[in-house]
């Protein structure tokens, strides 16, 4: 693997990988475990940025940029906005004692993850990295040549989502007069 250009080789690459992976996992855990929504949002931001770093390690520079712009710049900010909008309503109070069913659920989900991880951790053969892999030019070529129809469909989807979000969030004024 080390002979591949820009591959996450040993040395610096491995250090970056382990650091980013640890940070991503830790932030993910904290996102789920932290008691307050605003903290969860901040930890989500940490996970998203760590994964962006991993993208660069994986020679997906364009995608790393998109990850930072869309996730960190839009999605997480949207979360923060909503939390601010709801104010204290965004908190549900401290989680009461973890119920047995919930613990069982978590445990079984962990075992799902374990099995999946065990299955996927097997060794596999690798292939050589072609020229220009992951660059903006090549990804753009894949996007706008081979997948242009999907790209346009996604743009329509986004438009619909925006209209839908506005419609849902606005509500019916006649029914719910603002206090």
């Amino acid at each position: 693997m080390s002979e591949l250009a820009g591959a996450p080789a040993g040395g610096v690459g491995a250090v970056v990988f382990w650091a980013s992976a640890g940070l991503a996992l830790a932030c993910a855990l904290l996102t789920v475990l932290s008691g307050r929504a605003i903290r969860s949002a901040v930890f989500l931001l940490g996970t998203v940025l760590s994964i962006a770093v991993l993208y660069t390690l994986l020679d997906a520079h364009f995608l790393a940029a998109i990850q930072v712009i869309v996730y960190a710049g839009a999605v997480v900010v949207l979360f923060v906005f909503v939390i601010m909008l709801l104010g204290p309503g965004s908190e549900v109070g401290r989680q009461r004692r973890m119920k047995l069913t919930r613990a069982l659920g978590a445990a079984s989900l962990l075992s799902v993850g374990g099995v999946l991880a065990w299955a996927l951790a097997a060794e596999r053969p690798e292939a050589a990295l072609p020229e220009g892999f992951g660059t903006v030019r090549s990804v753009a070529s894949a996007l706008f040549r081979e997948n242009v129809f999907t790209f346009e469909a996604v743009s329509v989807l986004l438009l619909v989502a925006i209209i839908g979000a506005v419609a849902v969030a606005k509500g019916k004024k006649s029914q719910e007069p603002r206090p």
Binding site: P8, A24, L29, T47, R102, L120, E123
Partner: peptide
């Protein structure tokens, strides 16, 4: 040396954490 397996296990770990969060929170 970091292989595809490392990434996949990390991915599964984050996915599992997300799923548990979805279910328990």
């Amino acid at each position: 040396m970091i292989t595809l397996g490392h990434y996949l296990v990390l991915s599964v770990a984050i996915f599992t954490v997300g799923t548990i969060g979805f279910v328990v929170r």
